[in-house]
Amino acid sequence: MDRIPILKMGDALLITIQVDMHDRLALALEEDLTAKIAATKAKGVLIDISSLEIVDSFIGRMLDNIAAVSRMLDADTVVVGMRPAVAITLVELGLSLTGVKTALNVERGMLMIQNRLRGLGDFSGRRS
């Protein structure tokens, strides 16, 4: 079965989803990621979904779950590059992913994670 690769960049983990997510793939990702965070002691997780065109309520909930699990393991999750159509769909589904941090693109997402790692505190991505 296909697996989504999880790349380690310093203290952050980078996940780029470039295929359509089906449910089993999503579950596998959640498991892999949890194991990887524990193994690498990562402090930030960046999920790039700019190639994701179709979402359903399951994938939306999965993103929320991943964020919640990561938070328990002391890593913050940033979801980046969501497409407008995907954002509208998630909102219409009633999933506003309140537990997940978001950024427009990978660059800004990385900035957010780095700010947190540098102890800049509020994790808002603001330039200082």
């Binding site: 979801v79 969501m82 954002a87 998630l90 427009l104």
Partner: peptide, 12 residues
């Protein structure tokens, strides 16, 4: 609120 939520999901 929906509009705000959608913008937030995009990272704005």
């Amino acid at each position: 609120l929906k509009t705000v939520a959608a913008a937030r999901l995009m990272g704005a």
